[in-house]
Each structure stands twice: as structure tokens, then as C-alpha cells.
Design a binder for these strands. Structure first.
Length: 591
DNA sequence: GCCGTTTTCGGCCCGACTGTTTTCAGTCG
């Protein structure tokens, strides 16, 4: 057996995208182009490792991957190349695939530029292009003007400044700014943030805003007065795109009130959800767009509400968080959509850091037990868990750690129950314990004995190989005092990738041993990610949504955790901190 | 190349904006 390099999903997606580009240029088989584009998109989005699917002979289980592409990928994994792809790609300059990364440059333009100026090196193509622009050579060729030349340079500048995707937290703040601006226009009836913001994705690329108006031209004029505009990408009476000084693209759509339902649906997306919905309409001999549904005769039916629009296609209304083409349309057809968890279902938070001084090696919280408990009362919680980081092992002996936890226990015992206005809150003595690189816990057993139970988390050595890190997690989880795996993937959005254990093994172990997966609501974590939640649900694992608050206001992060849970299709029955204390305590073997 | 509660053949999502096209191609979402 020839050993193969383990091609990453993103590398394969890129390869298939390039094949699609070639088919676009060839013009001969437009539907092959669509097929390759679709396959690339599916691979980009899935959390299943293609290499593993290939090993298990399951590549075609992905929608959009048929026997044809599966055969090509088989060749790729066996021999590190695909002869058919190489033959297709050969006549085209590699530099082309770098240029299409620039907004406004598509396959045709990229190919033209590469041919005309003999650009071959994908690594230097963009630089060379900039040089040609400086020499004003682009505007001299047919199909380009001085204006389009300048435009390309602006788009290159934008490309070079391309920032990370925004966290949902940042995106909400930024969307509020422009919404506040638009609200002042007398011609605007309603403003809604849509797109990935409405779907509550964990990260947001562009901000999408829908504007309901009867006078789109006036609404557009008002939009263009927004002081944060750095560049206008396009402007029309039905849509406009701008880039703000902090390099965020904002897309705005203007539409009249009678088509509000259609606009909401269309602009919420996702793209792949919309495509599936339109295919469904087509099967019914209808045509769906942002304006409504056209029948065969071309007569348009308008929708003022989203519910009616979905209904017209024979579907239950689909919550925005589910609109990612992950089976929601089929579920809506057969009335099997999940009854998603809601913020009001949450009855407590087990991952709150306090200012109790226990000399941990990670950040401690800034607020006192009392302040945090008061907040828990405000949130109508029935319980709160104080889960500070363990005392640092480098600066303490085992005995010192045990002593620190004994004193802390005495402090928490004093407030084990908090009564306020006759509402009783149970206060739990927890700890967030480091899982050391060898899988041992950073607290000795006699220290753990002081606790009600503990959360185990990885805070170091994130890059261990699959087998090592899997065993490391399992070893930590098997300790009877460990009930929760904290921020399981360890990712920090835009900063640190997920660890890569054998998740199936972890999920299976958790289900069989009464261990719970945390959904960490801290906006830069949002961990487990939604795709892994969906994978875990298959094992019937139970979850707990915690904020990981290090300050009292951060206990308000819970909605972000709920958003992730919804995107993972979770119902309240999947999440243990929706249970009242008298039921939860049994599950946790507490009294 | 993919896919199927009208199909293993015959289809394949829909529309806006830009530029230089006098009727449309390219790009984007």
C-alpha cells in the first residue's frame, strides 16, 4: 500500500475549486463546473475528515460527492496526485489561481491578465500585478479602463488588509452602529441585521443589513452619508455594499414592506440553504427569489412573513440557526425540526471564575462570591458553580494545593445556599482542573476530594498527535470527580485551532460514563463548535452550557452559548443545566 | 459530475450591479 500524504479538507476544497475555475474558462461543460464548485463547498464546510472518510470508503456519503469525484480523490490519497486534474490544469498558468483571490477578479479576468503579461508564479502574481498597475499597463489592454485599473489596485489593498472574521460579539456591536445611523432616516421603516448574524454563526465575515423602505433611492442616499464609509463597492436602488474604515464589508438591501418575508428569508441565507430551497421550489414547478415565488406563468406571489413563505413550499418555519443545508429542509418537510433550546430554559451556570485567591497559573476572576451570587439571582438561576483554575502546580506542593482547596471549601460551605427574596440558590464548590500533557490531573486526589466535582480542561500542549491527545482526554475524564470536559476543542476563534482527538471515542466515553461536554459561551471560544455538537448528539451525549465568566458581566454571555447549541440542533433535554436543582443533583450524584 | 416521493436520463438557483457590451458578460452574494 502506497502511503499517502494526509491532504487536508481545505487543500482538497481548493483543488476542486480550481478545477471548477478551469471548467468555467472552458465553457464546454458548465454543469461540471457547478458540480465541482458544490463539492468544494461541501468539503469546506464539513467537519468530517476526508482522509478518514476515504479510508472507510465513505466519500460518497457527502452530498455532492459522487462516484466520479470519489474516484479522483481515491487516486489523490493513494498516489498524491490526480492525473485527470493535472491534465486539466496544465494549460493554465498557476498564477491565475492567486489572482482570483482578489475581489472583482474572476476566472476570465485572471486568465486574461496572466496570458497578456505572462504571469506564471502563483507566489508573486499579485506583486507583479501591482507593478503592472503602477506602470499603467493594465489600462492599455482591451476590456480595461483607467478606472478599472485603479479599482484593481484598491481591491488588492483591501485583500492585503483582509482581517480575521469577526466574532459574533464584535459583529453585533458594529451592526448596531450602522443601524443607529439608518434609524435616523425618515424614509426607512424597519432595519434588520440578517445573514450570518441572524443565523448566529460563531464568526461573521460581512455584516448584512435589510432595510424596509418605500423610497429606496432616499434610503440609499441616507446610507451613503454614513460617516464610517471608506469605500463604496456598489450602489443601486435594491442593494449596496460598502467597506468601513475598520475594513468590514457591509451589504445592505432595500426592499418594500410587502415582500418583507421573502427578503428576510433570502438575505438570512445561508447560500447553500437558499440553493436547496430553490431546488425544492423548482421541483414544484415554482421559482423562488428574494421577491417571492413565481409560478409557471410567471405570476409572482409575495410574502410579508417568513412563516407563510416556508409554508407555501410545504415546510415548517425553520429557525435561522439551522439554515446551513444540514438536513433542515427535509426535517421541515416531515415536521421533524427540533424544538430548540432557549435562553429561558437555563437554570444555572457551572463555570464561573471568582476572585478567591488560590494562586492559579491562569487568569482568576475579578468578582467576589457575593457579587456573582447576586447576579445569579438576577438571572433567576437555581444554582451556580464556582470553578476557579487550580492552584499552580509549579509553585505549590501537593500538600499546599490540598490545604488551599480545604480553606476554599470552608469559605464556600458558609454560603452553600443563598437566599434572596425567598429564592434559594445552590452554590457549588467546583474547580477547573488542568489536564496535564500526560493526561494526569493538576490536582491530587485529596484535593479533588474537597470539591463537589470538577471540570477538566486542556490549557497546554494542544498539538499532540491524535492517539496521544485522545488518551490524554480519556485518562482525565475517567476520574470519578471529573464530570465536565471544559471547552473541549480548546480553540480560540481566529487565534488557535481545535485540538484533534478521535472525537468519536471521546463522545462514546462521555455517554457511557456520565460525563458532560461543555458548550463554553465565552465569545472567543464558543466551544464545542456547532459541527462537533451535531457529531456528539449522535452518541446521545449530554451537554452543559457555561459562560466561563471571569467577571460578573460576563455571566451575560449565556445567549452566545445558546446560539451555538441551537446551531447544533440541541433541545433543552440535551442540556443538563436546563434541569431544576432537585433533578440535576441526582445526575451529578450530589445531595 | 451529481442526483431522483413525477426521472438511471435529463435536468442543474436567482437576481443585482458594473462597465463599455448598443443587448451583454463578468462578478458577486
Amino acid at each position: 500500500m502506497v502511503s499517502s500524504r494526509n491532504f487536508s479538507n481545505s487543500a482538497i476544497a481548493k483543488l476542486l475549486k480550481n478545477i471548477a475555475v478551469v471548467y468555467k474558462l472552458k465553457k464546454t461543460q458548465p454543469f461540471k463546473m457547478i458540480a465541482y464548485e458544490k463539492a468544494a463547498a461541501v468539503i469546506e464546510q464539513t467537519n468530517l475528515d476526508l482522509h478518514i472518510l476515504w479510508k472507510n470508503n465513505k466519500l460518497t456519503s457527502l452530498p455532492g460527492i459522487g462516484q466520479g469525484i470519489a474516484n479522483h480523490l481515491d487516486e489523490l490519497f493513494r498516489t498524491n496526485k490526480v492525473k485527470y486534474f493535472e491534465r486539466l490544469l496544465k494549460p493554465y498558468p498557476q498564477a491565475m489561481f492567486s489572482l482570483i483571490e482578489i475581489s472583482g477578479i474572476g476566472p476570465k479576468t485572471a486568465f486574461k491578465l496572466c496570458q497578456k503579461f505572462n504571469l506564471n508564479n502563483p507566489k508573486t502574481a499579485v506583486k507583479q500585478l501591482e507593478k503592472l498597475i503602477k506602470q499603467k499597463k493594465i489600462s492599455k489592454i482591451k476590456g480595461f479602463s483607467q478606472e478599472s485599473e485603479e479599482n484593481i489596485q484598491e481591491n488588492i489593498n483591501q485583500f492585503k488588509q483582509k482581517k480575521d472574521r469577526l466574532s459574533i460579539y464584535q459583529a453585533f456591536a458594529l451592526s448596531k452602529q450602522i443601524i443607529n445611523h439608518l434609524k435616523q432616516s425618515p424614509h426607512i421603516i424597519q432595519i434588520e441585521p440578517l445573514g450570518s448574524l441572524r443565523r448566529q454563526a460563531s464568526t461573521i465575515g460581512d455584516i448584512d443589513i435589510a432595510v424596509i423602505t418605500k423610497q429606496p433611492k432616499k434610503a440609499l442616499d441616507y446610507l451613503l452619508k454614513y460617516p464610517q464609509i471608506k469605500k463604496i463597492i456598489n450602489q443601486g436602488i435594491s442593494k449596496a455594499s460598502i467597506i468601513t474604515f475598520n475594513n468590514i464589508q457591509i451589504d445592505i438591501r432595500f426592499q418594500s414592506p410587502d415582500t418583507f418575508g421573502s427578503l428576510l428569508q433570502h438575505f438570512t441565507g445561508s447560500k447553500s440553504h437558499n440553493i436547496q430551497l430553490r431546488q425544492l421550489a423548482q421541483e414544484k414547478n415554482l421559482s423562488l427569489s428574494e421577491y417571492g415565488i413565481k409560478d409557471k406563468q410567471g405570476k409572482l406571489k409575495k410574502f410579508s412573513s417568513e412563516e407563510k413563505l416556508y409554508q407555501a413550499l410545504g415546510l415548517d418555519w425553520i429557525p435561522p440557526q439551522l439554515r446551513e443545508a444540514r438536513g433542515e429542509i427535509k426535517a421541515a418537510q416531515s415536521h421533524k425540526l427540533p424544538n430548540l433550546i432557549n435562553l429561558k430554559d437555563i437554570k444555572g451556570d457551572f463555570h464561573v471564575h471568582t476572585n478567591y485567591f488560590l494562586q492559579s497559573s491562569h487568569d482568576s476572576g475579578v468578582d467576589s462570591f457575593e457579587v456573582l451570587i447576586k447576579k445569579a439571582h438576577q438571572l433567576n438561576y437555581q444554582y451556580i458553580g464556582f470553578a476557579d483554575h487550580n492552584p499552580s502546580i509549579s509553585r505549590h506542593s501537593s500538600q499546599q494545593i490540598i490545604d488551599i482547596l480545604k480553606s476554599r471549601k470552608q469559605e464556600i460551605e458558609k454560603i452553600k445556599y443563598s437566599n434572596e427574596k425567598n429564592v434559594k440558590i445552590r452554590v457549588l464548590n467546583l474547580l477547573e482542573v488542568d489536564i496535564r500533557p500526560d493526561g494526569s490531573l493538576a490536582v491530587p486526589d485529596k484535593g479533588l476530594d474537597q470539591l463537589d466535582f470538577a471540570i477538566a480542561s486542556i490549557h497546554s500542549s494542544f498539538h499532540q498527535d491524535k492517539a496521544t491527545i485522545t488518551n490524554r482526554l480519556l485518562n482525565a475524564l475517567k476520574h470519578p470527580k471529573i464530570k465536565i470536559l471544559g471547552h473541549p476543542s480548546g480553540r480560540i476563534i481566529n487565534h488557535r485551532p481545535s485540538i484533534k482527538p478521535d472525537w468519536d471515542k471521546i463522545f462514546d466515553f462521555c455517554q457511557k460514563n456520565n460525563k458532560f461536554l461543555e458548550i463554553n459561551a465565552y465569545p472567543s471560544r464558543l466551544d464545542l463548535p456547532d459541527s462537533l455538537i451535531q457529531q456528539a448528539v449522535k452518541y446521545k451525549v449530554k451537554f452543559i452550557i457555561n459562560t466561563d465568566a471571569h467577571a460578573v458581566d460576563q455571566m451575560d454571555f449565556m445567549p452566545y452559548g445558546i446560539a451555538v447549541a441551537k446551531r447544533g440542533w440541541l433541545e433543552s433535554k440535551n442540556v443538563i443545566n436546563t434541569l431544576p436543582w432537585n433533578k440535576l443533583k441526582g445526575i451529578l450524584s450530589l445531595t
